[in-house]
Write a protein that binds this DNA or RNA. Structure first.
Lengths: 225, 225
DNA sequence: AATATTTTGTGATATGTATCACTTTTTAGA
DNA sequence: TCTAAAAAGTGATACATATCACAAAATATT
């Protein structure tokens, strides 16, 4: 129990810079909670005074758009969740929902802020993380809006395979309608395009189990729409 | 000359927290440069060791997408430019171009970082700014992708009127093809939709001079596509 | 095990926008 | 002031993708 934060610190660069006294501060002011697939972890519009750290699992980050809820991205552990939303104002500006069973650590915001002020390295790391995250969001948006659905779908499959599951074979963690949402397309289009990829022998599908048979083709589609 | 940074500090919340000795540090390590309309201020891919602060003027932030350059947003003074791109790695991750004559202050990155470490309030403000900026980029992306062109165009006009020029009458600072880029539409579509707005008596246009005649209609279009 | 609910699969049709092609107007440069 | 280049205006056509409408399959739920 006592070395939980230490464990996280071994994984996250931003936490490695913490001194043991600071780790203890976090230690005694955090709560680890289990979430089941489908459970909401952060809800947009809700008041929150905790920094949320995803220890294990996979989540979707989604935001209320002008017409419908939109999945911004998937995030896998270990990572902070809702840093910008928590630090900015205390009302969550987006939602986070578990798409796989997840383990989440809630850290008191004031303690977190105090540690942030006490430790320059830590705050540098957090700043760096925020910077990267913003740049990433620019890139993601440029992709979403410029590529057509086929290319974005290929990207999602490649991302799941390469970054999330690190395997050519994996089980889709979200429904086709969620995928549609993630690539700004209708559920039907996603379905049709997946069938197309199957027929072309680029992927194999059995239910939600997917195997990427021809990665280079998929990369080509990602590039050329 | 000597009180230039002080002037900025009067305007920017993040700089108000600076002590006079820290202001002096910035003072002696910055350079103010004038840019003409159309001049590039930050170029994606270039090496940079300066934090860039827009003292006056209006710029467009644009990024290389998979198919073409995309305008992420317009930014008006006073504001930092490319904070995330500069702090993150030193290679600019996006470009900034003046769309009106602008005055820009280049601050040495190391000095900026030192002040960031020395002054907790300052670093808190910067963190806050980065957080807000990331949230804003999520929202912008949700809008871009969910709304159709008519709605996004209405948004641009409203934004220019309300936030940038603070007047119902203003001169478009960018071309129709740039507007198209900003709302993910072709130049032709933008042109047609602008004509439509004119015909419907919602705006008046003479060259690039625009007057919003019916703001509430425009707001309705912004909401309902 | 039976029933309700969600997810998936697929055709037919509608539609917002891109693209092409060309002209006119405006702006910038020599 | 003349000329070249960029920007704006507008029709015709093409196309990716949404939407609608159902059926089949898979998952939850009681």
């Amino acid at each position: 129990m006592k070395n939980e934060c230490l464990n996280c610190a071994c994984v996250m660069k931003s936490m490695q810079s913490l001194k043991s006294c600071q780790l203890e501060q976090l230690e005694s002011n955090h709560a680890v909670v289990q979430f089941r697939k489908g459970d909401p972890i952060i809800k947009q519009g809700m008041f929150s005074t905790n920094v949320v750290f995803l220890k294990s699992g996979l989540v979707k980050i989604h935001i209320t758009g002008p017409y419908h809820e939109q999945i911004v991205r998937l995030a896998k552990a270990p990572t902070y969740l809702g840093l910008p939303t928590t630090i900015g104002d205390k009302i969550n500006q987006y939602s986070v929902t578990a798409v796989q069973d997840s383990e989440v650590c809630f850290i008191d915001l004031n303690i977190f802020k105090r540690v942030l002020e006490e430790n320059k390295d830590f705050s540098s790391h957090i700043i760096l993380e925020l910077c990267k995250s913003e740049l990433e969001s620019y890139r993601r948006c440029a992709n979403r809006t410029q590529k057509q659905t086929r290319g974005n779908l290929a990207d999602v499959l490649l991302d799941l395979s390469e970054n999330v599951f690190e395997s050519a074979e994996f089980v889709l963690p979200i429904s086709q309608s969620d995928i549609g949402n993630l690539v700004d397309a209708s559920r039907e289009s996603v379905n049709r395009l997946l069938s197309e990829l199957m027929n072309d022998g680029i992927i194999r599908m059995e239910g939600r189990k997917i195997e990427i048979l021809n990665k280079s083709s998929l990369q080509l589609i990602s590039q050329n729409g």
